[in-house]
Amino acid sequence: MGNLQNNLFDIFYMDTLACSKTWIHSLDPRAKVLTTLLFVGIVVSFGKYEISILIPFMLYPVIMITWANLPIIYLIKKMVLLMPFAFFIGIFNPFIDRDIILKIDLTFISLLDIARFVDLTKFIEIMGLQNSTGVIEISGGWLSFFSIMIRFSLTVSAALILISTTGFDSVCLALQKFRVPSPFIVQLMFLYRYMFVLIDEASRMVRARSLRTFDADSKMRFSLFVPMIGQLLLRTLDRAQRIHLAMCCRGFDGHIQMVRKMSFGMKEILFIAGWSFVFVMFRLYNIPLNLGILLSKLY
C-alpha cells in the first residue's frame, strides 16, 4: 500500500514539474515525443558490447535536465530505485558469457599517468577481473552487463524527462495528432484522471480495515480481500455510471474533442533537427574513442 501511494506522490510531483515554464516546457509536445522516441531508438540500436560509444548520449539527459530546470537528484533517485530489475537480468551475463573480448594494457595506461590518480590494481581486484602480466582482461559478459545498465539509465531518463517536461495530457494530445485512435487516447486520459480518485478510495478502504484489526501487522486474509476488491469494483462501476450521466448532461454524444492550441513552429523544427543531428553524429562516430586516440597521439 505504501508503495503505491508513494508512486502517487511521485506522479503528483512529476505533474507539478510539468507545469513549470521553461522554454523546453513550452515546446510543442509533438517535438518532445518525437525526439524522445528517436533517442530511445538510437540508444538501443547499438550492439550488446558497446560501452564507450553510448557515453556521449548522456549529453541529452544532462542538457535537457538543466534546460528544463528539473531536479537532478530526484530523477537520479528515481532511476536508482528502478535499477534492480535491469540489474538482476543483466547480472547473469558475466557468469555465462566468460569469453575475453577486451584487453586493456595497463602499461599503456601508466604511460598516460592516470595511475597516479586512480589505483587501478585495486579496482581490478574489486571487479574480480583477471590480472595477468599487467593486462586487464574483460569478458564479454561484463561488457554487456555495463552496456545494459547504461542503456537502461539512458532510456529511463529519457522517458522521465519527457513526462516531467511535457505532462501526461500533452503527451496524449501529441499522440492524438500522430493519429493514434481516439478511443485509446480517451482511455488514457480517463485512466490518468481517475487513477488519483480510485487510489485514494482504495487507500481509505485499506486504512479502515487496518484500524479495525487490532493486531498491528495482521495479514489480509483472502476471505476479506475478495469483498473488499468487490466493493471497490462495484463503487467504480457506479462511478462510471455517474460520470456518464455528467457527460450526457453536457451534451456528450460519443465524441470527445479538445480545443488546444498547438503550434509546430521554427523552434520545434530546430529542436528536433538539432537533436537528431547530434544523435546521428554520436551514432556514426565513436567520439570517446577518437578523443582517446587523439590524446594518445599527443603523448
Binding site: P183, L191, Y194, M195, L198, M220, M228, G254
Partner: peptide
Amino acid sequence: VKSEMYDEKVPLMGVLGAFIFAAQMINFTI
C-alpha cells in the same frame, strides 16, 4: 469498440483502468 455502444463505455473503460491500479494496492497474504 467504437462500433458498439461506445459512448456509455467511455467512462467505464477509463475508470476500470484506474481500478486496476487501485486494486493492486490491496494485497492479501497467500
